[in-house]
Design a binder for these strands. Structure first.
Length: 721
RNA sequence: GCGCGAUUAGCUCAGUUGGUAGAGCAGCUCGUUUACACCGAGAAGGUCGGGAGUUCAAAUCUCUCAUCGCGCACCA
């Protein structure tokens, strides 16, 4: 502190770099500069560079994965801003429908309450309060990560303008006959009392008993005897010779669970002769495949299991029983009746489960809104074919194409309150549904029955699928004209289907243009041991914890260096610590340089020797690092930068400069001073997108002569000289 | 069942169009009162999962096997 030998450098450099002392002030400096908003950026900026931030779920705090997303996008934005583009990064927050409702339900449960005992308006209001308070907390965290996004354009997924966009798309889909309401098999979660999209279902590997029963003259197999009450069709392949004596449509009398029934023979290609006896009975209400068969032959179907997972009156003595409990009892009864042929105890299959609570999904028939995906998907594939949308990794493109090629219709109705209400009426008589944006329809156009408001809300992803439209103010705003299509969509690879592909489809559908030109999908951030972070495992590494220990810049580098696009990474605090040391290294490089420049007059130019150094060392480094960045290889760019700054600038250049700075020859000394100045400013600029806080902190301390702008954030990216 | 990815130094990972391997961390040896111990110098450490093939040359291309992870589909 009282180092009287160093009067010529700012005092702050006499101590190691302490991130906690500077970060808040530096962020404030940036935010107050107004430069997060591209409208305020200086100079002629013809080219735009836009990223729409994946809006984090406003139902908790940020995890390391968010840290990676924010860091990558901020690095891209800062790089392009320094390169003179009109850089816009639009932040937002997601109400995250079902996700948030599940989080809130857990909270209610702890308090001994339940959403099923609440008025939906009250529930909605409570979740809104909860979400908004989380939202502001979360926005604070995004700031702490250094995000240079334009807060003035921030949007929440339940804002009126968003809802308006979503409603308009819904209506347009109806007009274009891409929307229908139909009774179809949906994935029903008996705990959460809502249907789920196919993507929200996980498959659990299980080994369970498999039962064979005598069904009249046939032997049928099943792992779910509790669904079999209503089975009155027996299906076999038309070419199966064993059943040549039976004709399609023929009926037979047989003894079944609760007495004699009449069964009908159905010949259908879905019957697999290789499987068991080749004959099966079907339960159309509770199985997708069976439902398809029954549709083909116009068969009856009846609900066996209610919405809570209990047996209906058709089960007679088993009515009201939970299906798990009923299974054993039904088998027992059939055994007593001599209809149990055999049991295969070890049957391996996978069972659909709710991705949130892991309870078994009960397929049910329900009237829902569906979007026809095939035409939308074809357009999306065309856009990728035409190079209108590019994926940073080939693998992601293949995964995308694969899914798009076999896409199924999308159930967008959810039976939860926390979401955007579906602007439609449903007939209380015939179930006919009609889109009604203006809330005017009262009578059914089909049966003249009374039309009532559809109580359902949209699947969150239906609205987030339109996020690039909503954030840019489609269709009329100036932002839409200027910034759509956006430059890059950067997000986690786990939501390529949920989100990325739907944005492409819906963006193309509404505007004719894909919403972004490039897709950068980052891998997952795992813990040190490579395990997925989850609250239940207790291995969640919170970004703020790491930031407190090592500083934000160190966290950012730890997330970026050597983390190739799309590959998962394990976040090791030791790695982050290495970059904390690096930040201090940069700090001390500055200390040395400023000390060496204390008597420099900033007019002297380089001698031949030092010009040669620029050509041979500095220029190639600038070129190499810039090239990697333009190719989205921030993992390599940051690594090279680290090596350039530490191994060359600090270890070699500074060391070899020491004797030259002491040279008797004033011109040798002055040239070396000019060279150091060049290296210092160039290094700070290149480091800035990766380590914005320490570099800006330093920049603010530099003499005016060294700077081409007061704020490093908008200084010019170095070019080869 | 179909597909995708991974397998490189003790650990975590890079390695762009094929030219006999790199970084960080950890560990080892030595060193330090003026940029920095959040440091410096040095050494050590890998038959690039196994096998086969193409090639003058393979971590890199082809095939195959193994282990792990993921996605999709099916599940009578």
């Amino acid at each position: 502190m009282e180092n009287t030998q160093k009067p010529n450098i700012p005092e702050v450099f006499l101590k190691p770099y302490d991130p906690s002392q500077h970060e808040t002030n530096i962020y404030k400096l940036w935010e107050e500069s107004g430069y997060f908003n591209p409208d305020n950026l200086p100079g002629e900026r013809d080219e735009t560079f836009t990223i729409v931030m994946p809006p984090p779920n406003a139902n908790g705090s940020l995890h390391a994965g968010h840290g990676l997303v924010i860091t990558l996008e901020d690095t891209m934005i800062r790089f392009e801003r320094m390169r003179g583009k009109k850089a816009l990064w639009i932040p937002g927050a997601d109400h995250a429908g079902f996700e948030t409702q599940v989080v809130y339900e857990k909270k209610l449960q702890k308090e001994g309450r339940s959403r099923f005992q609440m008025e939906s308006d009250d529930l909605y209001k409570e979740i809104m309060d909860f979400t908004l308070s989380n939202k502001s907390f979360m926005e604070g965290q995004i700031r702490e990560l250094g995000a240079s996004c334009d807060w003035s354009r921030s949007l929440f997924t339940l804002d009126d303008s968003v809802i308006k966009t979503v409603h308009a798309t819904f209506a347009q889909l109806e007009k274009d006959e891409l929307l229908y309401r139909g009774a179809r098999i949906v994935n029903w979660c008996p705990k959460h009392q809502t249907s789920l999209s196919n993507l929200e279902v996980n498959y659990d590997e299980r080994t369970e008993p498999f039962y064979y029963f005598q069904y009249g003259p046939f032997i049928i197999g099943t792992s779910r005897p509790e669904t079999k009450f209503g089975d009155k069709y027996v299906v076999m392949h038309p070419d199966d010779k064993r059943y040549d004596d039976y004709q399609h449509g023929q009926t037979i009398e047989l003894e079944w669970i609760n007495g004699p029934i009449t069964a009908t023979i159905i010949k259908d290609e879905a019957g697999d002769p290789e499987m068991g006896s080749g004959a099966m009975t079907i339960t159309p209400w509770h199985s997708g495949v069976d439902f398809d068969i029954s549709k083909r032959h116009d068969l009856d179907y009846e609900q066996i299991i209610d919405w809570r997972g209990k047996l209906l009156p058709i089960a007679e003595e088993f009515e009201g029983m939970n299906i798990k409990e009923a299974r054993a009892k039904i088998v027992e009864k059939l055994d007593k009746k001599g209809l149990l042929v055999k049991v295969d105890e070890k049957y391996d299959h996978s069972v659909p489960c709710c991705y949130k609570c892991n309870r078994e999904i009960e397929p049910q028939i329900r009237e829902q809104w569906f979007v026809k995906m095939r035409p939308l998907a074809d357009k999306a594939i065309e856009a990728v074919d035409a190079g209108e949308v590019k994926f940073v990794t080939n693998r992601d493109e293949r995964v995308f194409r694969d899914w798009m090629s076999k896409i199924e219709d999308w159930n967008i109705s959810r039976q939860i309150v926390w979401g955007i209400p579906i602007p439609a009426k449903v007939c209380s008589e015939c179930g006919h549904g009609q889109v009604d944006l203006d809330n005017k329809i009262t009578t059914c156009e089909k049966c003249s029955g009374k039309m009532e408001q559809d109580p359902d809300t949209f699947d969150t992803w239906f609205s987030s699928g339109q996020w690039p439209l909503a954030t840019t103010g489609y269709p009329d705003s100036d932002d839409f004209k200027e910034y759509y299509p956006t430059s890059v969509m950067e997000t986690g690879k786990d939501i390529i289907f949920f989100w990325v592909s739907r944005m492409i489809m819906l963006g193309l559908y509404r505007t004719g243009k894909a919403p972004f030109k490039k897709v950068y999908l980052n891998g997952m951030v795992r813990d040190k041991k490579g395990l997925k972070m989850s609250k239940s495992k207790g291995n969640v590494i919170s970004p703020s914890e790491i930031q407190e220990r090592f500083g934000t810049d160190a966290l950012r580098m730890g997330l970026l260096v050597n983390n190739a696009p799309g590959s998962d990474m394990n976040l090791d605090p030791d790695k982050v610590n290495a970059y904390k040391k690096f930040a201090n290294k940069v700090w001390n490089i500055t200390r040395f340089s400023l000390d060496s420049l204390s008597d420099f007059d900033y007019t002297d130019s380089l001698n031949e020797n030092d010009k040669e150094n620029i050509a041979e060392k500095l220029n190639p480094a600038v070129k190499e690092i810039t090239d990697h960045m333009t190719k989205d290889r921030f993992d390599i760019a940051s690594e090279k930068l680290y090596q350039f700054v530490w191994d060359y600038f600090a270890s070699e250049l500074i060391e070899e400069s020491k004797p030259l700075l002491d040279s008797e020859d004033a011109s040798v000394k002055a040239s070396r001073q000019a060279l150091l100045a060049e290296y210092l400013t160039t290094s700070l600029k290149m480091l800035h997108p990766f380590m914005p806080f320490v570099t800006e902190t330093i920049w603010q301390e530099l003499p005016e002569e060294l700077k081409d702008d007061d704020i490093l954030m908008i200084a010019k990216w170095p070019t080869v000289k």
